[in-house]
Nucleic acid binder design. Structure first.
Lengths: 124, 124
DNA sequence: CTGTATCCACAAAGATACTG
DNA sequence: CAGTATCTTTGTGGATACAG
C-alpha cells in the first residue's frame, strides 16, 4: 500500500464543522435567517415542531460560535432579532450545495414536513 | 413585512442531508474512504475513539443510503472492504468546501484529535 | 414577548464479552 | 477478521410551568 499518511487535518476540520452545525436544527435555522433577520417567536413558528427550550439552546450555541447575532430592543413587549454574521454568510453557498446534492441524489425525498412552516407563514 | 412565503423545500432537503450525514462520524468515514477503499479494521483504527459497534452501525446506515458499498471476500480470515459510491463521490467537493470553510472561519481549531489516526497510520 | 427551570423520555454511544 | 449481543451511561430533546 503506498498510502502511509492520510491528510487528516482536512477530516479534522470537517469533524469540527459537523460538531458546529451538523445537527437537526442549526442548518434550518441558518437557512431561514438567510432570507433576513427573524425574531425569536417567528423562528419558533417557522422551525417545525421545535420547542422554545431547544430553540433557545441552539441559538445560544450559534451565537457562541459567532454564526448568528442577537439584537435585543429595549421595548415592551421585548423584541429580539437574530441575524446571520459574516462567518455564517460564508456558509450559505455550501448549505445550498448540500441541499442541491440531496435533491439530485435522493429525488424521492418526502417534502411533507415543510408544509407546516409554509402553512404557518401563510396565516401571518 | 414583504416576505410571506419561505422557499422551504430547500431547507427541507438540507434537513434531509443533515439527517443522512450530519453526525459525529459519517463525514470522517466518507473522508477517509475518499482516498480509497478501506477494511473494517482499518477504519476502526483510523477513526479515533470509535467503537466497533458504533462503526458497524454507521457503516450499515451509510450502506442503506447508498453512500458506501460493502464488499466481502470469502477468505479466512474474512476481508471486508468499504468504498465510496457514485452518490457519495458527488458529496466530496462539498465536504471539502465545508472543511475549508471551517479552516478559514475558525483558524484556532485544535488539531490534537488527528494525531491518533496519524500515529496509527505511521505504525502500519 | 422572550426566554429559564425543572423534570422526564428516549435514542445514541461506550464497554465488554462473545460468535462465525 | 469482522462483526453481534448485552448492558450501562450519557446526551439530546420534549412538556410544562414560570419569570423579567
Amino acid at each position: 500500500m503506498s498510502r502511509k499518511y492520510i491528510d487528516n487535518p482536512n477530516a479534522c476540520t470537517l469533524v469540527h464543522t459537523m460538531n458546529t452545525i451538523g445537527n437537526k436544527w442549526k442548518p434550518i435555522i441558518l437557512y431561514l435567517l438567510s432570507q433576513g433577520p427573524l425574531r425569536f417567536g417567528m423562528l419558533n413558528l417557522l422551525v417545525p415542531t421545535i420547542s422554545k427550550k431547544v430553540l433557545s439552546t441552539q441559538l445560544k450555541e450559534l451565537e457562541n460560535d459567532d454564526l448568528v447575532s442577537r439584537t435585543a430592543y429595549a421595548e415592551t413587549p421585548p423584541r429580539v432579532e437574530y441575524a446571520l454574521t459574516q462567518k455564517s454568510k460564508g456558509l450559505l453557498p455550501i448549505l445550498k450545495a448540500l441541499s442541491e446534492w440531496a435533491e439530485i441524489t435522493y429525488p424521492e425525498i418526502d417534502f411533507e414536513q415543510c408544509r407546516i412552516a409554509d402553512h404557518q407563514l401563510k396565516e401571518e
